[in-house]
Simulated scan of single mutants.
Amino acid sequence: MKSWLVRQTFCGIATAAIFVAVSSPSFAGLFKVTITNNAPTGGAALAPVWVGFHDGTFDTYDGGSPASSSLESLAEDGNVSGISADFAAQQSNGVQGTLATLPPPPIQPGQSVTQSFLLSAGGNNSFFSYASMVLPSNDFFVANRNPQAHDISALFGTSGSITFDIGLPGTVNDAGTEVEDYNTSAANGLFGLPGGQGGPNIGANQSDVITNVIGPNPLGALNFPGNLDLSAFDFNNAALYPNGIATVTISAVPEPTSLGLFGFGLVSAGVYFRRRSQAS
């Protein structure tokens, strides 16, 4: 009877440790966000990507409506300060940050950036949003229109992470805040293209609304001079961009206490069964 009780106790500890380490559905803890540019060589890049964890009410944009001044700055200049300030004002318990390469030129094809975020218990930060300017362009951007599109509760499935693609064909947006012209296309020099703006908010306002960029050759409207090959920038080509412009992966980083309990359970169970084997 005693042997049976001891065996059940150790097995219970090991099982509980595994359950706590893998299955605990708490939104408090450390979460790692990784963004990888999927574009072909010489293709589209992303300006620094703003991300935020929130309560499901933070709205980055509404299709068919005029862009806010904050979104205009992001879409035209890659400037995230406006959307960051909006988020801080609306989400008192929200957690946000900006993912960028070092030094901070755009996230180019094949590059990945990673940042960790600490979410506190009771912060109500179970939803994830993102926004970034697409380059080269003068006012194209990617962002999630639905503030509840990405619920990190899915992290507590079998994989411990969630992955989704952004900038899929037909989902890149035109902010409608600037007349299409290569001379106001930011960061042209990074792509070997002429022109480019010398300061923020350069170019005439288009006085339009946010729409999806549809059809082939999405940069054709920018009227790049000469015979420049823009084919690698055709992010609406599913053959070139089958996984969109980039992939986002959000992973839960196991807590040290959970890992310790998990290890203790395994070691304890191992010691018991080793002693039992020796006694036999």
Rank of each mutant, 00 (worst) to 15 (best):
S69F: 11
S69A: 15
L71V: 08
E72N: 10
S73K: 00
S73F: 00
S73T: 01
L74D: 00
A75K: 01
A75M: 05
A75E: 02
D77K: 04
D77V: 03
D77F: 00
V80L: 04
S81C: 09
I83K: 05
I83R: 00
I83N: 00
I83D: 02
S84P: 00
S84V: 05
D86H: 06
D86F: 05
D86T: 09
A88H: 07
A88V: 14
A88N: 11
A88R: 13
Q90M: 12
Q90N: 14
S92L: 15
S92N: 13
N93D: 15
G94C: 08
G94V: 01
V95F: 09
Q96T: 11
G97P: 01
T98G: 00
T98H: 02
T101M: 08
P103C: 10
I107G: 01
P109N: 08
P109E: 07
G110N: 09
Q111L: 09
Q111I: 08
S112L: 02
V113S: 03
V113Q: 01
T114Y: 11
Q115K: 15
F117S: 05
L118K: 14
L118H: 13
S120W: 11
G122N: 12
G122A: 11
G122Y: 09
G122C: 12
N124P: 03
N125D: 12
N125Y: 03
N125A: 09
S126P: 02
F127S: 02
